[in-house]
Simulated assay, not measured.
Amino acid sequence: MSEPGEDDAPGQQPDGAQLLRLTDYGGIGMARILTDLRDYWQSLRRGRAVPARADVEPHGISRALDYAFVLERIAPGAARFRLAGRHLIDLMGMEVRGMPICTMLNPSSRGRFSDVLETVFRAPQIAEFRLRAQADYARPELVGRMLVLPLRSDLGDVTRALGCLISEGDPGAAPRRFDIVGEDLQPLFDGGGIMAPSATLSRPPATAGFAEEPGRFDFRHATRAPRKPVPQPRDIPQTPAERRAMFRLIDGKDET
């Protein structure tokens, strides 16, 4: 078989046969999207542990743009969408910008997701989730993947994240919510440690003041406060002599 000549048109064989590429005809696989986004995030680091949110540009993730999102941490274990691609909007049937990311999950999976998400910001580290949406009326079963990569805000703290959520199959009737069927935590550097998810990490810290838990009252050591005397009006006699002086003896002579 001869090699293609330099004058041959791109994508066409010397004998005139058309060369087809599967990536040009059909959907892009989940693995490709995840790899593209991870590689782009790695390119932004430039020797740093965590890249900055300001470095993220849409043209850098053109292939993954419909599936990508940017998160803002708003509380321990909680984050909301600052930006979200078209695929996430189609899954929910509405604009998701400003919504908590946990709305993409069923309630039974939200606690676990919050625990893992907090480690992305606090460690920081990388989290990848395996997702499944069960079949229902007008809703076929979906399998999906979610990748969350930490970012630094303009203040320098790790309170932003770049990620993507991609599912395979017809979304069906919106909204579609997923269950977590597994997760994979990865360190930022090879050989680094992993922070294990814990409910204590995603629990808001106790604050002083009115948020304090009320103390317990022990009735065994309670004492009765002394009773204060009831104030008396000035015109009421106080002593026995004063009270006797208020009475007047009446006999028949006084009657008219």
Rank of each mutant, 00 (worst) to 15 (best):
L185R: 07
D190C: 00
R176N: 13
T207K: 05
A199E: 12
R177G: 06
S202K: 05
E168N: 14
R203S: 12
G191D: 13
E183R: 00
T207D: 04
P197S: 13
D170V: 06
D190S: 10
A206L: 06
G172V: 09
L201W: 01
I166P: 07
G169N: 06
S202E: 10
I166S: 15
S167K: 07
S167H: 11
I194E: 00
F178L: 02
E183G: 01
L188H: 03
F178E: 04
V181D: 10
D190G: 08
G192Y: 09
I194C: 01
D190Q: 06
P204E: 12
L165E: 15
R176D: 12
S167G: 09
P187D: 10
V181Y: 04
I180H: 00
R177M: 11
G193D: 15
A173M: 15
P187S: 09
M195N: 02
P187E: 07
R177D: 04
F178Y: 08
D190H: 02
I166V: 15
R176P: 12
Q186P: 00
R203I: 02
F189P: 00
I194G: 01
T207G: 13
D184T: 08
L188F: 08
F178V: 02
F189G: 06
M195Y: 04
E168D: 14
Q186T: 02
S198Y: 04
E168M: 12
D190R: 07
P205H: 11
L165N: 13
A173N: 09
G172A: 10
R203N: 09
I166L: 08
M195I: 01
P171G: 06
A196F: 13
G172I: 08
D170P: 04
G192D: 14
D170K: 07
T207A: 14
D190F: 01
E168C: 10
L201H: 00
G182N: 11
T207P: 00
L201N: 02
G169C: 03
A199W: 03
D179M: 12
G169R: 05
T200V: 08
L185S: 05
P204W: 11
G193W: 04
E168S: 13
G172K: 04
L201K: 00
R176A: 11
S167L: 03
L165W: 11
E168T: 15
L165R: 15
G169K: 08
R177A: 08
L188K: 00
I194A: 01
D184E: 07
P187W: 05
S198R: 07
F189L: 12
S202W: 05
S198I: 06
P187T: 04
P171A: 07
S167P: 10
A206E: 07
G191A: 11
R203Q: 12
I180R: 00
R203H: 09
T200N: 01
L201A: 04
T207I: 03
T200A: 10
R203A: 10
D190V: 04
I180K: 01
F189E: 14
D170A: 04
L188R: 03
P205Q: 07
A174W: 08
G169E: 07
D190T: 08
A174P: 15
T207F: 06
I180N: 03
P205S: 11
A199T: 09
P197D: 13
L188E: 07
L165S: 15
I166E: 14
D170F: 05
G169T: 02
R203D: 12
A199F: 07
S198G: 13
G182I: 10
A174M: 08
P204Q: 13
A199H: 10
A196E: 15
R177F: 02
L201I: 01
D184I: 03
I194F: 03
